[in-house]
Structure formats: C-alpha cells, structure tokens
Amino acid sequence: MRTYRVAYPLTWRAMDVLEAFVAFVWPPSFRAAVPYLFLLPALILVGLLVLGLIQIADTSMRVLDRDTFLLSDAYSLDNYRRALTEPFFATIAGRSIIGSLIVTVITLVFAFPYAYLMVRTSSSALRKFLLVALFLPFFIGQVVRAYGWLIILGNQGIVNDILGHAGIPTLRLLYNYPAVLFGLVQYMLPFAVLMLAPALTAIPEELEAAAGSLGASWLKTFRHVVLPLARPGLVGAGLVVMTLSLTDFAIPAMLGGGSQDFIANAIYDQFFRTSDQGLGATLSLLLVAVGSLLVGVVFTAFGAGTLAMGGRRK
C-alpha cells in the first residue's frame, strides 16, 4: 500500500481534492442541469438583445420636440409615417436592398470558383496561397481596406495612372454606386468563401467523377451535381453576405462620396447628426424587419438549406 501511495502522483491527488470540491459544490444529482447551465450565457446575451429591441421599439414611438430636444412622453406612430412616406427613406431603403442583392449574387459568383479551387486543388502550395490570400484581408479592417481603395481608385491612384499611360483620360472610379458595390463585394468575398468551403469539402470528389463517367460534361456536372449539393453552403453564404451588406455603414460612407447612403448611414444621421433618436430607432427597427424579411424569403425559396440536405424534389 505504501509503495502504491508513493507511485501515486501529486497531480492525481490534487485532482482528487478538486473533484471532491466540485462534487460538494455541484452534487452529481445536479448533473442534468449542466447542459442548461452552459446555455445560460447565450440566453443572457439574447435576452439583453431582446431588452434592447424593446427599448428601441419604445423610443421609436416617441417624437422629437425641437423646442426642447426632448422626446415626447406620448406614443405616436409619426416616426413610422415619416420613415414610410418620405421619399428620401424609400430611396435609401431601395438602394440598400438592391445593393445587398447585387452584392450577394456577385460575391457568390466570385466566391464559388475560389472556394472550389481551394478545396479541390491537388497542389498544397496553391491551397496555402489561396488561404493566405483569403485570411490576409481579415487582419486588415474594413475601414483600412476602404482607405486602400480610395488610394488605388482615386483620380491620382494606380488604376488611373495605368489608364493614363494607355491614353485614357482620368476616370472617376470612386464616390458612386458601383464603387460602393465593388467595395462591399471585396469585403464580403472572404466571408462567402469561408462559408462555402466546408460545404464544397462535403461533396465527395468521386461524385463529380461519377457524373463524368455517366455522361455529364463539366457544365452539366456543375449544374446537376455540384450546385444542388452546394446549396446549403450557398444559402448560408448568401444570407451572411446579404445581411452584412444590407446593414453596412463604413463602405457606403467612405466609397460613396456622401451620395450613396445605406440605411445604416441614415440611422447614424438621425442619432448623431440631427439628434432625433426617435426616428433613428424607427429606422433601426425597420432595418431589422427588412433584414428578417429577406432571410425569411430566402428560407422559403431555397429551404432551410443550411440545416438539411434534402427537402426538395425536381
């Protein structure tokens, strides 16, 4: 017994003490509650979010009095009336929604071959290069990247320099809608690739070979095998890109030259420029509603693709 005790390491004894302590604090009979305990932080976070939304909903129904710069005590739907009837907000909402849809489509079109090559290439050097090229922008924040585009695409930037050498007069490449969409696509591309890569990895390469041997050309294989099987990834990536684009602030602010505001920019203006927290809250809630609606539409149109493989028949 004594020799056994000597062989028994100190760390084990420490663990015994620790386990006894844990058993005292958290008796085994409580064990069933452990999974719920782990759920608690997430529940608290979600709960805080809901509380915040309730607060915002309350604020959204109060109107700013410009004689005192206080919000009214009485509830009114005036902010909603303004948000839904003033043409300026319709313009901005239209621009944001259409922009986010365009950005989503273009991003997916670009991200798909990138992710596909990254997953399928047999060259580990190429895969590493693609991964590094993908992650590098993550280390560079959105704002810094937008500044980069200001430098590259400016009237005295590299692109116009090259165009100048080719005899093309200086072009205004910045401060317009395409510039904002371009910036958003560039910003979203890594997100989309990262969402797509696992979905593509899950498609066995053998399936593509099989389709080939069964008479499907590359294009048909893509259309009938790869694309349908990549749908969960496409839906997931599309949702992320769409919601992030819809709610983006920095890119429209910086690459839009002040004339391409998205909804988030209008919200900022209400909170911080015209001090109208009521209208700001209203716009925020409407943005949440529009985003949720788009997500809902995607779910009904393409199924809960991220959650299940099957679902739809031809």
Binding site: A209, A210, G212, S213, L214, S217, T221, L229
Partner: peptide, 21 residues
C-alpha cells in the same frame, strides 16, 4: 473525355447522388 466514353463505372464509395432518389 470521360463523359464521351461509353463506360459505366461503379465507384469504391459508390458515388451515388445523395440529392436524388
């Protein structure tokens, strides 16, 4: 190319299309 050869193949992992019946 493979898709123009009249060859049927049964793969090691079968490679059945999971999204089809």
């Amino acid at each position: 190319p493979p898709y123009k050869r009249a060859i049927g193949m049964v793969f090691q992992k079968l490679a059945l299309f999971p999204h089809m019946t």
